[in-house]
Computed example of a mutant assay.
Amino acid sequence: MKKLFTLSMLFVATALFAQEEATEKKLSISGSVDAYYRTTFNDAGLATTDPGTAFAGQTGFAVGMGNIIASYESGKVGAVLDLVTGPRGAGATFSNDIIDGIVNQAYAYWNVSEGTTITMGRFNTFLGYEVIAPAANFNYSTSYLFSSGPFSHVGIKADFTLSDDMSLMLGVMNPWDTNDISGTGEYALGGQLGYKGQFLNLYYDSGKNGGLGFEIDYTGGFDLSDDFFMGINAAYNTNDATKDGFYGVALYPQLATSDNFSIGLRGELFQPTFDGKTDGIEAITAFTLTGSATIENNLIIKPEIRLDSSKGRFADADGAASDSLMAFTLATIFSF
């Protein structure tokens, strides 16, 4: 009897210990710091002539962004606080923060089941191929498609794992990322359907009060070999309120030449529209060749040459209208 009691107590203690392990609280800290040097070859050196999309448009030495991410998890629930500073962070966050451009993400989540997660707060957008943090992008400067869409959303979303290959996300948010609150009572709808690493994204708001309107966006890519990857982004946007819009496509071929070095090209065609038409609006082409060298896992060095072309959009060394702008950038990104 004593042996049976002892075994029972051992079983209970083991169960309680397993339960305690299952609800173990975990705090993790991560982030990145990046800086760069940039020079142009054929322009007047004016900020107004630089591509508004670059997020790396300073001349000379400059800081890009520093961010620190605190993630806390306890059982099925958790929270993430992502703080940023620097020009890149300020350019991609809300303008009505307590301190302008400091909160990138701030959300809580609940893993309702093995295949369902509900998230509420501010989270980075599901649209587009690229993201705000340069450590997660292959190219250091960003595309026109990335800069023309939203960067983050404030709202609630539900992520569903439908199968090993398929996922679904549905969300309700404040309109676009210019609105930290919804003072007009208007909300946006978003959705994402994923299949084997390919994603179809949909977003809609009325376009009023600085909204984005309607956008459909495809992001994905394919491993063409063990060392060669082709990324793809295509998007179409229209806004009934402002009549502005755009469409475009970007290809991202990337070749790994060794364990520590890769080279990639982003080729992009971006066409702004007005009232659904392109009359008198020149398309923009941009080619960005980037090398990526990893130093001891944490430090990445990225030399980059970028050529933007569009009739009369830029300025030459004398300040006259120019059809192109070429720049060289050397960036360093440290992640922890």
Rank of each mutant, 00 (worst) to 15 (best):
L289K: 14
D308C: 03
D240C: 07
G291Y: 02
Q192Y: 10
N298K: 12
V84E: 00
K157H: 14
N201W: 01
T14I: 15
G185L: 07
A135P: 04
L251N: 06
L83S: 01
G221D: 01
L212Y: 06
T285C: 10
Q58A: 15
A15H: 07
L212G: 03
Y144R: 06
L4W: 12
T116Q: 13
F328P: 00
S167Y: 07
P303W: 11
F274C: 07
V12D: 08
S148M: 01
F41P: 08
Y109W: 02
G171M: 08
S262H: 04
T49P: 05
Y218R: 00
L325T: 08
M230Q: 06
D82P: 00
V131P: 00
D308G: 03
S95T: 03
L46D: 09
V77I: 08
G245W: 01
R38P: 10
S147D: 14
E215R: 09
A158N: 11
A22K: 05
Y204P: 01
R306Q: 15
Y72W: 11
G155C: 01
F222S: 04
V63K: 10
P175C: 04
L224A: 10
D259E: 15
L27V: 13
T40K: 03
A106N: 00
G185V: 03
F160S: 01
S225P: 04
I132C: 11
V172R: 05
A234N: 00
G64P: 03
S262G: 08
R313A: 13
Q19V: 12
W176Q: 07
L200R: 06
G91F: 02
R306D: 03
D50I: 14
F126Q: 09
A286S: 14
Y247N: 02
F222M: 06
I281N: 12
A320E: 09
D97K: 00
T53R: 13
T39Q: 12
G31H: 10
L325S: 02
S292G: 11
R306Y: 07
A54V: 05
A256H: 11
Y247P: 03
S322R: 04
D226A: 13
T117I: 13
G231K: 07
S8P: 06
A133V: 14
D50R: 15
T125R: 00
P51W: 02
D97S: 02
G267I: 09
T116S: 10
E282K: 14
G121N: 02
Q271N: 05
V131C: 06
D259K: 15
L265T: 01
Q19P: 10
V12H: 06
E268Q: 08
G264L: 01
Y218Q: 04
F17C: 12
S30Y: 03
W176K: 12
F11Q: 15
A331T: 00
G291A: 01
I98R: 12
Y218A: 02
A79D: 03
T117Q: 12
T117R: 08
T285W: 13
A47E: 11
Q254Y: 09
K157Q: 15
Y109K: 00
I284S: 05
F274T: 03
I333W: 05
P87W: 06
E304V: 05
T219V: 07
S292D: 08
T329K: 05
L212T: 08
T59N: 15
